[in-house]
Design a protein around this nucleic acid. Structure first.
Length: 440
DNA sequence: TCTGGGGTCCTAGGACCC
DNA sequence: TCTGGGGTCCTAGGACCC
């Protein structure tokens, strides 16, 4: 039996823990750059504010209803997530951290030592709420996909008190009939449209399509598995997370700018910032990368700019995998030089690291004489490692960006030109001493 | 005026291998 | 005249997730 625990309106709930004045009011949390709505309180949902709505479209509506919009505060949400996951790990045999606000649980054998599964699920919810302040719902079912189904229903119907368990065929049928096919895990916009065109409205009807049809129309093997899981045949196991974190197969960092940028140095400042951050994540994961991509984008909403809006360049590092920020920056600069065109207005940039692997003992050498200008010479490995370790320690202890590449420096008191908007940011209550909550 | 960021998996097609 | 079979790796693109 799988459990799925999901934080209700997670980002909004994190904010409310430290700002009770937000209770009972329509509250939304915005994406980076204060762009779109990414989390909504129940009151905001009731106003009809859709997920993903551009902020400028709903600002007036929120104001009229004494609502509040908040800039996203990932330091806070990440830390609250860690606390929630730690509580879960304490109470079940295994946890798979699926996203910042969701985890699959292994419920095997839980009933034998603590009453019914339902009672156990309620106990987990109470514990998480008491220890972190985050309200959750729990779905329980024989497959991950069905656990997602019942979790959604538990959220939708308050009379279920936050939990729903699915263990018989008649319960499965009732649950699937109650859920629109478009709300099934794995059915996005395109597939929803296709299903609707074929008259398939509920998850129950979706579970009834033929295997051949699912294979043909819902992404091959992926669609086949989806149908199996809806019918109660598990196709995905639990992949327990080590120490509450996930080892990634790719690491990226990208941002929209607060204004249009045209100067190379400004773009380079942004790319330097993002690449430094990505390299930090890479080292935190204990990996090195051997493929680097840099991309820059123009405004895709602009009427007079033809696609493609994004141009990217990828390089397999000729000197082998590395997690050295300085070496990555040297390659990154060449990629950006390749992409940059003077006179164009750019709105976003980013970097992606792939080909991740743990450091090997020796450094990979190029069999053929490398064209010397293409290779960024790798300085002494041990010294570099020490340097990176010192960098990470300082930035962890004194705050992100305390020690950083000079290309990101800005003269004067104004924010960097690539800095995005965040006009309604709450404090980092749990991760900065200066921001600790004062109760008077 | 204003429109996010960070991931996953799968498929198809081409180059190349023996 | 006649032109195989079974692989791997890489890339681009498309779908999905939160």
């Amino acid at each position: 039996m799988f459990g799925l625990v999901d934080g209700n309106n997670f980002y909004v709930s994190c904010e409310r823990v430290f700002q009770p004045r937000l209770d009972g009011r329509p509250v939304v949390v915005l994406s980076n750059n204060d762009g779109n709505v990414v989390s909504r309180s129940a009151e905001a949902k009731q106003l009809g504010i859709p997920m993903g709505a551009p902020y400028f479209e709903v600002r007036e509506l929120l104001r009229r209803h004494q609502g509040q919009a908040l800039s996203s505060n990932y330091a806070l949400y990440g830390d609250m997530s860690r606390r929630v996951m730690a509580r879960l790990a304490d109470q079940v045999p295994a946890v798979e951290v699926y996203s910042i606000d969701e985890a699959f649980l292994d419920l095997q054998g839980l009933t034998t030592w603590c009453g019914t599964l339902d009672a156990r699920a309620q106990q987990i919810r109470r514990d998480v709420l008491a220890c972190t302040g985050i309200p959750t719902c729990v779905g329980m079912a024989p497959t991950k996909t069905l656990a997602k189904v019942v979790n959604r229903l538990a959220k939708k119907y308050p009379e279920l008190h936050g939990i729903l368990r699915l263990d018989t065929d008649s319960r499965r049928e009732r649950a699937l009939r109650a859920l629109p096919a478009a709300d099934v895990w794995g059915i996005g916009r395109q597939y929803a449209q296709l299903l609707s065109a074929h008259g398939i409205r509920t998850a129950w009807e979706l579970a009834g399509v033929s295997e051949a049809w699912a294979r043909k129309n819902l992404g091959g093997i992926v669609g086949w598995r989806l149908i199996q899981e809806l019918r109660g045949q598990p196709c995905q196991g639990l992949q327990p997370s080590e120490d509450g974190t996930l080892a990634r197969q790719s690491i990226s960092c990208s941002r929209s700018f607060g204004q249009h940028l045209t100067a190379f140095d400004d773009l380079w400042g942004a790319v330097t910032t993002y690449l430094s951050r990505a390299a930090e994540k890479l080292r935190a994961q204990g990996d090195q990368a051997h493929i680097l991509t840099v991309f820059i984008s123009q405004d895709r909403y602009s009427a007079h700019i033809p696609p493609p809006y994004t141009r990217s360049a990828t390089l397999t590092l000729p000197s082998g995998p590395t997690s050295n920020t300085l070496q990555l920056l040297a390659y990154g600069r060449r990629l950006l030089e390749k992409l940059y065109e003077p006179g164009r207005q750019y709105v976003k940039a980013g970097v992606v690291l792939v080909g991740l692997e743990p450091p090997s003992r020796g450094q990979q050498l190029n069999l053929f004489e490398p064209s010397t200008e293409a290779v960024v010479p790798a300085p002494d490995q041990e010294r570099v490692q020490k340097l990176m370790c010192t960098l990470d320690t300082l930035n962890h202890r004194f705050g992100r960006g305390t020690v950083r590449p000079a290309a990101t420096a800005v003269v004067g008191p104004q924010p960097a030109p690539w800095q995005g908007k965040a006009q309604h940011r709450s404090q980092s209550y749990t991760t900065r001493f200066e921001d600790i909550l004062i109760v008077s």
